[in-house]
Nucleic acid binder design. Structure first.
Lengths: 150, 150
DNA sequence: ACTAACTAGTTCAATATCGTATTATATAGG
DNA sequence: CCTATATAATACGATATTGAACTAGTTAGT
């Protein structure tokens, strides 16, 4: 790699980092006190992918240590947004199911982010974003794979 | 905004968030124990922009509360990477100066990230990234401004 | 000058993240 | 079977992040 190109890649990841931070703040502004972006992400994942998964599977999906997932699921359970049940096939494990309250919270939150998204969408139309997303997805997959190689 | 477009924007911010998380982990793998990505970002900022800034200015630049900046600067100072001096014009304030050790650490870290960047750059060439970066910068600026409006 | 309002930074308390060690259960080899 | 190893989850301790309260110093209005 040409050394003069390094700043470009640095800037790329820098912009990504800042946007991530700002968008996270935007999301958390819509969540009830005590809930943070990672908690919402778990609820979202349980619906988009499927619920009934084990805590460890979720920890891997989110690239966080399992202790972090234990903690986050504890918060969600305390709020009645998920239910943890013993795993039918493995006594060591558990299954995570989203509750009705969890579904409702997720829907309401998405609804509440509407105005902020709309302002963003007005400036950056779906075509523009739609062109970038596949590239980002490709990059995410690449970095993900590179990490697994460790 | 067409409601069917919401998932696109959700996915966009989701990909951004994951890439941010993964790239942060990549960077931290190159930092000495006890130093994290935000600390490095501060060193980087002191060189890219300028040093001699106040802690509050830095806090605003990074969109973090000033208490967080106090803490981070304390870590950097403890490691001898920055020096905090009384502000010559304002008795309440301070100036943050990067030390020689700080410069060296920053350079060595950038050097160390070389291989990881090279692998990424091999798959995603500068032209591709160069097309996306300006768009991201524009989005970052927009979100930044929207936040200030609060 | 004097006082009120404001500002920069720190201290403190609460919570999040995460590495290490521990417990309970499962699996594989003899 | 029985034992060694592996795995799922948790407990615990250390550090990061952040809001609220506090201290010290500055600025503005009179």
């Amino acid at each position: 790699m040409d050394r003069t190109e390094i700043p470009l890649y640095f800037q790329f990841f820098n912009e990504i980092g800042i946007i991530g931070q700002l968008s996270r703040a935007m999301l958390e502004a819509q969540l009830p006190k005590g809930l943070l972006a990672p908690h919402f992400a778990i609820l979202n994942h349980l619906i988009r992918v499927r619920d009934g998964q084990t805590p460890l599977t979720l920890a891997k999906a989110f690239q966080v240590p399992k202790t972090t997932m234990t903690h986050s699921l504890g918060i969600l359970e305390k709020h009645g947004l998920v239910a943890l049940k013993p795993h039918p096939k493995d006594g060591r494990s558990k299954q995570v199911w989203i509750t009705e309250a969890g579904r409702t919270l997720r829907e309401n939150t998405i609804e509440a982010t509407g105005p902020a998204f709309a302002a963003f969408a007005e400036k950056f139309d779906p075509r523009t974003v739609g062109e970038i997303v596949p590239k980002l997805a490709e990059m995410r997959a690449f970095l993900d794979a590179a990490r697994d190689a460790d």
